[in-house]
Amino acid sequence: MNGKLQIGWNRNEMAQKVAQDLPDGSYVNLGIGIPELVADHVPEGIEIIYHTENGLLGMGPVPEKGQEDIELINAGKKYITAITGASYFHHADSFTMIRGGHLDISVLGALQISKEGNLANWSTGKPGAIPAVGGAMDLVAGVKNVWVITQHVTKDDHFKLVNDCTFPLTGKGIVDRIYTNLAMINVTEKGLQVRELAPGISFDYLQKRTEPTLIQ
């Protein structure tokens, strides 16, 4: 972690927190990055079906070395497998699942999240940056529950949980839950409500690293 001491939960523990909250039988889309780790932590006896927007319902684990198939990849263009009982489909069907409200949960990464649950995660808007949106705007517009998993602050200690997003938005008022290395936070009508603090993290420590006033 850039030579820094890990504070709070590590990436796997964050993914584990999300995994423990997934209801049995959910249809879930995992975004690129830390969200991809969630699949490794689903408790035994729970059945989750993973959707990848490039056309597979029933995404399985990473293949063993030598078993990779160039024509079987996930949205991050990484090699994957398909579970028994999986199905393939084209893009219009895939986004019918997303925008038609058929998926239960979308787990995404974030650049910024505002106190109203606005999300910015596709562009810093900086000159020379290549804007790339992929399926993020469709996911936040169409999936019933949007959960964000992210480090609590940026690498150079800037707020990621902000009063108002300064980066271009992915969607407005769409984030339901935030999982960071420091805490689990719910987005409520009253503001950001802390659900659980990571071990060794005090409310004051968390508040100092969060721009909006938190609800205890």
């Binding site: 927007e53 925008r99 992929g134 705007m137 469709d138 517009a141 169409g142 969607g171």
Partner: peptide
Amino acid sequence: PQGTLAERIRAGGAGIPAFYTPSSV
């Protein structure tokens, strides 16, 4: 947006000139 791209292509193929979507609002 990827879903809008897919739907724009689907609509084009289905003779639908335009449509409304929540993505990117």
